[in-house]
Design a protein around this nucleic acid. Structure first.
Lengths: 153, 153
DNA sequence: ACTGAAAGACGTCGAAT
DNA sequence: ATTCGACGTCTTTCAGT
């Protein structure tokens, strides 16, 4: 991180907002020519600051209208059991995010499904099949105020 | 959504995993030539299934080591107050996601900061400045088990 | 480390089948 | 839907400052 200057940060800000932008356009915006911009981007990719480039899809157009944050506690907390839980969770495609968290619960899942019926099916038939879940508490998303994948830099 | 066939879905799956892939490579993977793949992608972009293309950055390499889910309640729930809260929240760059949720709290924020000291500063000096917040309950992320921006299709 | 120019690759799109 | 082909633009590189 130390070796990044303000030019690098500006490039990162542009790219994480829209990676379709051309090297030339970035160059114009930050008042450089294309070559240094090109080389900086390559450096940022190689050094891992940029992990990958992805397409962002429209959740609702793809009929995934329901987003739920699901708080999970485990019955036991041994290393083996935790590991098995993680393995089981990773296989569920409806779970787009999973965090090990502090507080009253052990894990926080972000689940994306078509509708309430699909969520019911998810809880009963998918979560319900996983061993060692103590409790599951669902928080439903009613509105997305802000939704970005950006790292504040 | 109805008008998407299996080919379109395959293309979306590839692109949301890695948008650096060339039209030619997708064509090979799904056994089509480049022209129809190209046209399908353009259609998916124009119809809004693909919202944009972005670079995914490495949070930890950029010194944003602490992720916190912050549950907020408002003191009052009038339309005006909710609107002002939203406006205030949107101005905080540390808040990468904000949802209006069901349950014991009104809003769920995902906050990304450098460390615990920065979080303290965020809560005291940024959240603390916002009117009408009744309570804030922080859940700290200890480990990221799964973290994807993909829509399950 | 940057500029400017030049080569080459790929996205882009029309025409024909 | 496919191949072919051509055009334009961007990526990529190199010589020069």
């Amino acid at each position: 991180m130390k070796e990044l200057d303000e030019m690098d940060l500006k490039i990162l800000r542009f790219l994480q907002e829209n990676s379709d932008i051309t090297t030339k356009e970035i160059a114009q915006k930050i008042h450089l020519s294309t070559t240094p911009v090109y080389e900086r981007i390559k450096k940022l990719e190689q050094q891992g600051y940029i992990k990958k480039y992805v397409a962002v899809l429209d959740r609702e157009k793809l009929d995934r209208d329901l987003v739920v944050f699901c708080n999970i506690t485990l019955k036991e907390h041994s290393k083996v059991i935790g590991h098995q839980f993680v393995k089981d969770i990773l296989s569920l495609k409806e779970v787009t995010e999973c965090y090990n968290v502090s507080g009253d619960y052990d894990f926080l899942l972000k689940v994306m499904v078509k509708d309430m019926r699909a969520y019911q099916d998810f809880v009963l038939n998918h979560l319900g099949e996983i061993e060692n879940i103590g409790s599951a508490h669902s928080t439903f998303v009613m509105g997305e105020i802000k939704q970005t994948y950006e790292v504040p830099v």
